[in-house]
Simulated assay, not measured.
Amino acid sequence: DGYPVVAAADPLRGPASDAAALRTVLDHVKGPKIVVGHSYGGNVISEATTGDPEVKALVYVAAFLPAPGESALELTNKYPGSTLPGALDPVTYQQADGSTATDLYIRQDKFHHQFAADVPVRQAALMAAEQRPIAQAALEEKATTAAWKTKPSWDIITTEDLNIPPAVQRFMAERAHAHTTEVAASHSVAVSHPHLVADVIERAARTTVR
């Protein structure tokens, strides 16, 4: 629709280090920006965009909006409804310094139901095969800043989400005074309802970028 778009890669290692990586992209892209985060990406954009005057709005898509001192895991467990723990496939590995760390995948046989129930089965199977793991430590790391406290925010709340319970999403959106859109969708709402997600992002752009 005429907007320049960059899909920045998220390392999925931890909010602080991932935010630093995202800031290198934001610094490279000149001019006003709308920054969008899905799921744990909400933690990352909340940290990366704090104090950046070129970021005019934030769009959270079935995402976390943590306050300083909160982690994704803590927020997930604030209200019941997440069935993610039982669908995870943890992989522990040794790091270069000799310590161990754990990456989390979603089991491929549970991916469709858990993550993308409203996505066609074959497409969900491809998503399951291509998924990148998140470090377990990333979900436990506490936020240090919250850009949504000072920037206009939009939030798409997914009412059939099995990862982040809808009650948790509503709590965070209300606290952030976000412009909310609720949709009966799975956690993979950007795949199952791409036009709705794009419309909310464009609405944020039209409202805040002059």
Rank of each mutant, 00 (worst) to 15 (best):
Y3L: 10
V5M: 08
V5D: 02
A7K: 15
A8E: 09
D10Y: 08
D10Q: 09
G14Y: 09
G14N: 04
A16N: 12
S17N: 15
S17R: 15
D18Y: 07
A21C: 06
R23V: 01
T24N: 08
T24C: 03
V29I: 14
I34G: 00
V35A: 00
V36Y: 05
V36A: 06
G37C: 03
G37D: 09
S39V: 03
N43Q: 15
E47Y: 03
E47I: 02
T50F: 05
D52V: 02
P53E: 13
V55L: 08
K56N: 05
L58P: 02
L58I: 11
V59A: 05
Y60E: 06
V61K: 01
V61T: 00
V61A: 00
A63D: 04
F64V: 07
L65K: 08
A67H: 10
A67Q: 15
G69N: 02
S71L: 00
S71C: 00
A72D: 05
L75Y: 07
L75E: 05
L75D: 09
L75R: 13
T76H: 03
T76E: 14
N77D: 15
K78L: 00
K78T: 12
S82A: 00
L84M: 08
L84R: 08
P85D: 11
G86H: 10
D89R: 12
T92E: 12
T92L: 11
A96P: 09
A96C: 12
G98A: 01
T100P: 06
T100V: 11
A101V: 10
T102W: 00
L104A: 10
Y105A: 03
R107M: 12
D109A: 11
F115Y: 07
F115C: 13
A116R: 02
A117W: 04
D118T: 02
D118M: 01
D118G: 01
D118L: 04
P120A: 02
V121N: 00
Q123M: 14
Q123T: 12
A124W: 13
A125T: 05
A128I: 03
Q131G: 01
R132A: 13
R132T: 13
R132D: 11
I134P: 11
A135W: 06
L139T: 13
L139H: 09
E141K: 10
E141Y: 14
E141F: 07
K142C: 07
K142A: 07
A143Q: 15
T144C: 03
T144Q: 10
T145W: 00
A146E: 06
K149V: 07
K149R: 12
K151S: 05
P152C: 02
D155P: 06
I156C: 05
I157N: 01
T158R: 03
E160K: 15
E160A: 14
P166W: 05
P166H: 04
R170K: 14
F171P: 00
A173L: 01
E174F: 08
A178N: 05
T180E: 11
T180Q: 09
E182V: 03
V183A: 06
V183W: 01
A184S: 15
S186D: 13
S188I: 04
S188V: 04
V189H: 12
H193L: 03
P194L: 06
P194D: 11
H195K: 09
H195Q: 07
L196S: 02
L196W: 01
V197L: 05
A198Q: 13
A198I: 05
D199L: 04
I201M: 09
R203M: 08
A204G: 03
A205E: 10
T208W: 08
T208H: 14
V209S: 04
V209F: 04
V209K: 01
R210D: 00
